[in-house]
């Protein structure tokens, strides 16, 4: 299913309602991009703009879309934050990003990454979607990661840990340098960086340098984001777990230094 077909199908099952008086007939196309909202809300820090609910009220999928007016050079000029309001909505967005700069692109991304939404849009039946959903439960993996990370931290004295970790208050600088010095980041990586900068996760991640002797970490290249070379661990599920269980995750930014003009690149 391509993006347009997916969004058309979404409109059959979901009803977006504006939370702003003069924002009429919201959609996932023209009014999906952040540029549409930028000028309207430039002086507001954060505002709820949409409530999206399942047309079949018994399915009880309800989530809100907020516009956040922050800017970050090279990454975003405002972004959307999705907040699930019901348990069913929580399940729909489990293990996936809840921030985006284009709602149309975002809902296609949700479709591709949420087994529940995929089945729901095809069968039109939430019970069916939940019954057939093959979403793996990663809770055990997250518990093990938390334990392994805590054991690693315990190996260091406070002083030596301080010399290993990069400075938390300089997170924005580290991300700016990553964007400017490297080749262009993939949309997936950009989405992850927006998440890192959001207030929700900022207190639960800690950047470490490339050669830090820490084995459990999220690696960020310009192409991909993964935990310990394991692409199957859902990064956003892991970040949410870190927030809910108040733990820290280490993140390594992998520089390729291919920024600037595309000349003089080496291949071997």
């Amino acid at each position: 299913m391509n993006r347009k077909e997916c969004l058309d199908l979404m409109m059959e099952y979901f009803k977006p309602e504006s939370a702003i008086n003069y924002l009429k007939n919201p959609d996932f196309e023209l009014k999906s991009h952040i540029f549409y909202y930028r000028d309207i809300f430039k002086d507001i820090e954060e505002i709820k703009i949409l409530r999206i609910s399942s047309k079949n009220s018994s399915d009880n999928i309800v989530f809100d879309v907020y516009y956040v007016s922050q800017e970050f050079d090279g990454l975003f000029h405002g972004y959307f934050r999705i907040k699930p309001e019901t348990e069913m909505a929580e399940k729909l967005f489990e293990n996936i990003s809840k921030v985006a700069t284009d709602l149309g692109q975002y809902f296609y991304y949700v479709y591709k990454n949420s087994e529940i939404l995929k089945i729901y849009l095809i069968s039109g039946n939430l019970e069916n979607a939940l019954a057939h959903c093959k979403n793996k439960d990663f809770q055990q993996n997250f518990v093990e990661i938390k334990k392994a990370t805590q054991l690693e931290i315990a190996k260091f004295s406070t002083q030596s840990l301080k010399t290993i970790l990069l400075r938390r208050e300089l997170l924005e600088k580290y991300i700016t340098n990553f964007i400017k010095m490297n080749s262009k980041c993939s949309d997936r990586v950009k989405m992850f960086l927006i998440n890192l900068l959001s207030s929700k996760y900022a207190g639960h991640i800690c950047l470490i340098p490339k050669r830090a002797e820490i084995k459990n970490f999220i690696q960020v290249t310009t192409e991909q984001v993964f935990f310990n070379d394991n692409l199957s661990i859902p990064i956003y599920g892991l970040l949410d777990y870190a927030v809910n269980y108040n733990c820290v995750l280490f993140v390594k930014l992998d520089f390729d230094f291919k920024g600037g003009e595309a000349i003089g690149k080496g291949n071997d």
């Binding site: 010095m181 920024g259 003009e261 000349i263 003089g264």
Partner: peptide, 9 residues
């Protein structure tokens, strides 16, 4: 005025 990598190149 340019970014570091551009200057070096």
């Amino acid at each position: 005025d340019d970014e570091l990598m551009k200057v070096l190149r």
